[in-house]
């Protein structure tokens, strides 16, 4: 099957994923809207005025890109992870395995779905943020680049998780015990430079810290890290995770006995 046909196959899968996300909008789009509204009300409105960052940016403005990134990361990851695992669980993955769609097209199809959900929820959070504060864009290119690349990276990571998952518990472990702590300690709600030295050093090892700062730079023009290095790291992660997933699918890990 040629390249064009593979594109159609991948597009079909992507479209199927997008339809699924829209069909379950009350589970996929509403919860992040409610959660982030709470963050904006509690941390932004009620406590935000008492927090001084030492620059012209208000706390709620500082927090908004972080909340958008939080939403993008968790939704991209969870979408691909749960969708691919469900396909394995109810054996509908066999629809893909017996068809002539290749492994790269399968991964792109699922990642496309993760990207759609990640960006859709990110947009919802952004719109909610506009109700609470004025949102400025320093660089549209950086906003899109970091939002899209981060969503792709975490969709790919969710795919890897789903390949290895054997039961529903296995798809909840990483989001609960790894992603959530990393996101909350990744500078979403605070500036790492305000932390004691040893916490600052620990934060430097947190990959979420770099993508949050990347998006914050896109919105506010401020960043605590080197933006180009963060961008390059994301590109490397995309290639690395793509390679890992292609290898796992080719070997049939988790899908072929």
């Amino acid at each position: 099957m040629g390249f064009f046909r593979q594109c159609i196959a991948s597009y079909t899968l992507m479209l199927k994923e997008c339809h699924r996300i829209v069909r379950i909008w009350s589970q996929s789009l509403i919860p992040p809207a409610i959660t982030t509204s709470m963050y904006f009300i509690v941390f932004g409105n009620l406590l935000g005025d008492k927090i001084q960052l030492g620059n012209d940016v208000s706390y709620i403005q500082f927090m908004t890109p972080g909340l958008i990134m939080l939403s993008i990361i968790s939704n991209s990851y969870v979408n691909v992870c749960s969708s691919f695992f469900s396909a394995k669980f109810q054996k509908s993955i066999e629809e893909l395995m017996v068809a002539s769609i290749n492994n790269v097209a399968i991964i792109i199809g699922y990642v496309g779905g993760g990207l759609f959900r990640g960006l859709a929820t990110g947009t919802v959070v952004c719109i909610i943020g506009m109700l609470f504060t004025e949102i400025t864009i320093h660089s549209w290119a950086m906003v899109f680049a970091f939002a899209i690349l981060t969503s792709i990276v975490f969709s790919l990571a969710g795919f890897t998780n789903a390949i290895f998952a054997k039961k529903f518990d296995d798809i909840a472990i990483v989001p609960t015990f790894v992603l959530t702590p990393l996101i909350y300690l990744g500078g979403v709600f605070h500036s790492v430079s305000s932390l004691p030295q040893h916490w600052q050093s620990l934060s430097m090892a947190n990959p979420i810290y770099y993508v949050v700062n990347g998006l914050r730079y896109g919105f506010l023009g401020i960043s605590e890290v080197n933006i180009l290095a963060s961008f390059a790291a994301l590109v490397v992660c995309v290639m690395l995770l793509m390679g890992v997933n292609i290898y796992l699918l080719r070997k049939g890990v988790g899908i072929r006995s």
């Binding site: 099957m1 593979q6 079909t12 199927k16 509908s92 629809e95 893909l96 068809a99 002539s100 769609i101």
Partner: peptide, 20 residues
Amino acid sequence: NFGTFEKTGDIVRNQAGFFG
């Protein structure tokens, strides 16, 4: 081995799409 929440027509249409 099909999605139980998907429509019958969508299942067959998508399967055709997976063949390009």
